[in-house]
Nucleic acid binder design. Structure first.
Lengths: 201, 201
DNA sequence: GAGCCGTGCTGACATTTGTCATCAGTACCC
DNA sequence: GGGTACTGATGACAAATGTCAGCACGGCTC
């Protein structure tokens, strides 16, 4: 009895290659492919796969929302594949009900085994990321600080950030100042960069 | 007679998947794999592949330098695979002697055919990118402006940029001002972002 | 040779940004 | 009830940044 897979990745070439890789296994078959999170979520109810393998980075929006929806609405277990495997992201993924968390540094030959594990009801989490997640410094930023930093990422001036977040410019500067102090960054752009690298935004 | 391939990609999972994809073809065989540009360049002389398939984004450094070296030293044709397929990057790739330019939006089934084309002595360039390259606006920035923008990308303050580029802070501000005007960006960070998205830095 | 452009610098100026103190309301915990 | 933390704001101040003009040099072209 074969495990029927839904495969989601925005890079067609990578998706096709992953499909080829998984098709080498006699007990796995890719029954649907999606280029975005929304497409994956839309396809899942019709296809009813046994398991979904989704890339985390699928603009527009992230694969995480799709993963959460697919799991919640259909009870289909989801394995997330990601390029930027940060502890904070793992945390969010687990909170969303993801059953497998696989960074792209994982050897290709192990993917099939991981899929079988997860399909068998177990979880799989990359051991390195898990270890890092256990002794990471927790995110020191507040919700508003994160929101303001998010709006900072595209290089916009403070006035524009203030409009985007519906705050007074002075308040925005205060939050930015706090975030910069906590992150020991010389400018808000450096702070936004660090926060992003940590997976906090 | 099979075509012997050197495969370079920093993401092990993707590299393995691509290897699986290409191994499905009877006339292709992956004889070596590399995780970085330098590793690929180091492996090539010993392995002497018929063709190299390299990812453009392979930190540290880009795959472009490795591609140029492999082609120049061994005469091995190179197919570049890339996520950010910008006209400016295509231009640089062609200048480096790359024979094939494949964005990751290419259907996986066509990769083998492209490899055979290039191995047969022809070139392959993604038609969309090529078309875009023909009527793109040329980069309006000068060499120094580009250099200063490059140093801007990590969110460093002007003083630091000045040290990195060996210029007076005032001069740096002038170049940045010029670049921002040409790119119609409100801040230097926005300008650096645009320049990067265009493939200019 | 004159004109243009890129490079590199300075100084002056306005604006933006970062820092800090302060205030007020809300929520939460001890 | 008091302490603490987050939110949201204002005002004042210093530093960084952006803008502009001007000057000098070298290379290039017409």
């Amino acid at each position: 009895m074969t495990i029927r897979l839904l495969l989601g990745d925005d890079e067609v070439l990578v998706r096709g290659a992953l499909a080829a890789l998984l098709s080498l296994e006699p007990d796995l078959s890719v029954v649907a492919e999606a280029s975005s999170g929304t497409e994956a979520a839309a396809l899942a109810p019709a296809v009813r796969p046994d398991l979904a393998v989704l890339d985390l980075e699928m603009p527009p929006g992230d694969g995480l929302a799709a993963a959460a929806e697919i799991r919640a609405r259909l009870g289909v277990p989801v394995v997330l594949v990601t390029r930027h495997a940060r502890p904070a992201i793992l945390r969010r993924a687990l909170a969303a009900g993801v059953r497998g968390f696989v960074p792209k540094t994982t050897p290709a030959v192990r993917l099939a085994a991981i899929i079988r594990e997860v399909h068998g009801g177990r979880r799989y989490v990359d051991p390195d990321i898990a270890a890092a997640a256990l002794n990471e410094r927790p995110c020191p930023l507040t919700a508003r600080e994160l929101e303001v930093l998010r709006a900072t990422r595209h290089g916009a001036p403070v006035s524009e950030i203030a409009r985007a977040v519906h705050l007074a410019p002075g308040t925005v500067r205060n939050y930015l100042s706090g975030a910069m102090a906590k992150l020991q960054a010389p400018t808000r752009h450096a702070a936004a960069r660090t926060a992003w690298e940590q997976g906090w935004i």
